[in-house]
Amino acid sequence: MSIFAKIVGTGGYLPPRVVSNDELAAELAQRGIETSDQWIVERTGIRQRHLAAEGVKTSTLATQAAQQALEDAGVSAQDLDLIIVATSTPDYVFPSTACLVQAQLGNVGAAAFDVQAVCSGFVYALSTADAMVRAGRAKKALVIGAEVFSSILDWSDRATCVLFGDGAGAVVLSAESEPGILAAQLNADGSQMGILCAKGNVSHGQVVGDPFLRMDGQAVFKLAVTSLAASAHQVCEQAGVQLSDIDWMVPHQANVRILNFLSRKLGVASEKVVITLDQHANTSAASVPLALNVARRDGRIKAGDLTLLQGVGGGFTWGSILVRS
């Protein structure tokens, strides 16, 4: 009998501090940087973001989201045999953030590791977990996207610091006899690494290189739209479905202009696109699972619906997953 991976629970967590565009603009003005709510909304669609308090780590956000997903699935942490965390802001060099989450959940024995594909991280991690479930190597898997991106932002760079927020989203996968994840398609082009990167690292106790996120916004926009459109067609072809069959599209929440342009390019009605960008900003690897959780909990995504999940980010990485609820 064939084994398939199905999403049986979702969860999300956002730090309690909500920072509106007006509040952020006032804080940046004290640093001599001019911006405004109108400037940010017109260019990005973002109206607010959640920011973690100083000292709060990615594993803390991830664990909160995981606990909600486990409760939603009716699964005990002890039942998990696989934990994957997608993050670009790990607590430590090592151990992995997944191992830290495992300890906080009270699980012992599950395989646990991190995936680093920046804003595509959750799609990469979900595809990895799907493959392990299908291979019979896991029966219950926890997949988390979590970030404290505020820790790597240059708050003197208006082009990037207004874009990002902190948060975590999680899903629980279960081995089932009926398909849940129908198809997955992943890509990368390392030659484009310079358009979105954070090149710093720690060596011999010192920070080497630029530790802050840097981005060429126009280049990212063009590559994101082109790559995600192609990926959507490829994953639908792999699954044997049409784009018109898709009930919901849950793309990485980077910029509302990208989302609008992509939906038009694919011929997907705007009302089928789940957007949380205005409330969460860009939470990198957390953006897709956070948006998925919101749409499941508010009743938009229902049992039997076909949902396209898409991620795109530094690396340059991108990918798509088709999910049947």
Rank of each mutant, 00 (worst) to 15 (best):
A52V: 08
D157V: 14
A224D: 07
A52R: 03
Q310K: 03
S120C: 14
K6Q: 14
A98F: 05
N293R: 05
G194C: 03
Q67F: 04
G299K: 08
D216N: 14
R264D: 10
V256R: 15
M249K: 01
A230N: 03
E271C: 07
D210L: 06
L80R: 01
S36H: 10
P16D: 09
Y13V: 02
D305C: 11
G106V: 10
W39M: 13
N107W: 01
I33W: 10
S76Q: 15
K222P: 04
V172L: 02
M1Q: 13
D189A: 12
V108I: 13
G205C: 12
Y92K: 11
F261S: 08
D114R: 04
V118F: 00
S36F: 09
H280P: 02
Q102C: 13
S20M: 11
V162Y: 11
L142P: 01
V118E: 00
Q30M: 15
G190V: 01
G74S: 12
L213C: 10
F94T: 13
Q242P: 02
G314P: 02
T89S: 15
P15S: 07
L290T: 02
R300C: 06
C236N: 02
A175Y: 03
T307G: 04
P90M: 14
A159C: 04
T160W: 04
S231Q: 10
S191Y: 00
I152R: 13
S244G: 11
G267A: 05
V115P: 08
Q30I: 12
A103H: 03
S284E: 04
A285C: 12
S227N: 14
A229H: 00
V75E: 09
Q104I: 03
A168R: 01
A135W: 09
D154R: 03
V108Y: 08
H233F: 04
R158L: 07
A230H: 05
C161W: 06
A29M: 07
I40M: 10
R158S: 08
A183R: 00
Q116E: 14
F122E: 00
V101G: 03
G9T: 08
H280K: 11
Q206E: 10
S203G: 05
